[in-house]
Amino acid sequence: MSGILARRRQKLLALKALRTAPAPAETETCPACGAGLPRREWVRSLSVCPRCGFHRPVGAYYRLSMVLDRGTFRELDAELCSADPLDFPGYRDKLAQARRRTGMGEGVVTALGRIGGRRAAVGALESGFFMGSMSAALGEKVTRLVERAEKDRLPLILFSASGGARMQEGILSLMQMAKTAAAVERFSRKGGLYISVLTHPTTGGVTASFASLGDILLAEPGALIGFAGPRVIEQTIGEKLPEGFQRAEYLLEHGFLDAVVPRAQLRETLIRLLALHGKGAASHG
């Protein structure tokens, strides 16, 4: 790859990452332990609190910039966005706001890149865009990424963060669960490697479709992961839920994750996993 292009891509990704990164105040307070830390310390620690280990949610571009090799980010389908299919009252304005605020067309960034020198198809959901909820455009971007991974015989890595369905797109939101799950199934049958990383929070339709279908399921410490939200469950069963319910560590104990990986070790873990799958990760089909 040409050095100039690589530098330009790196710069672009860094700029985009900044846009959804925490506000540039001098000191920022940890939402978990209340410790006030200089912003540069947050940046150095990948937005993990150095005092209590709390993993603050990060934007999709920032997320990808943490794991990809410098200068290898090539975004796909950046221009895809929602067309307000149900003509839902007020939705168009909210979409415009979200797009202005995040600089993204939809709630997921998909790209090709390299991790530890290995090519991969990667994607990250953006919790700052309608809470990463599943719109038809989000489902379409994820599906295209899976299909691209299948076509180019690349390993697939997806970082999930989602509040569930996009209410304003109704049944078409729901249908994206079937669409993305079917794409992952096809990819898997061809021998493709899919690593799904669940980040805080991953719930609803995303949990109940592509996010749970990885060959390897990883999660960040403390991430809330579930199908139904805790409040809905408490209302249904009429009792308090146990401490740590639906947290990554809880899921690990119940057999639904391979590992809980601190953010600082995520890139190294992915490199290791890609190497472990050797040729299988890159030459299936």
Partner: peptide
């Protein structure tokens, strides 16, 4: 809809639905 209960979550409601979707699709 799927039952939103404590045990249902502990037994992997999300995974159960996801893998059913995947299986049915193929």
């Amino acid at each position: 809809g799927a039952y939103p209960g404590r045990e249902a979550e502990e037994h992997g409601q999300g995974e159960a639905i996801a893998s059913t979707l995947a299986l049915m699709s193929g």
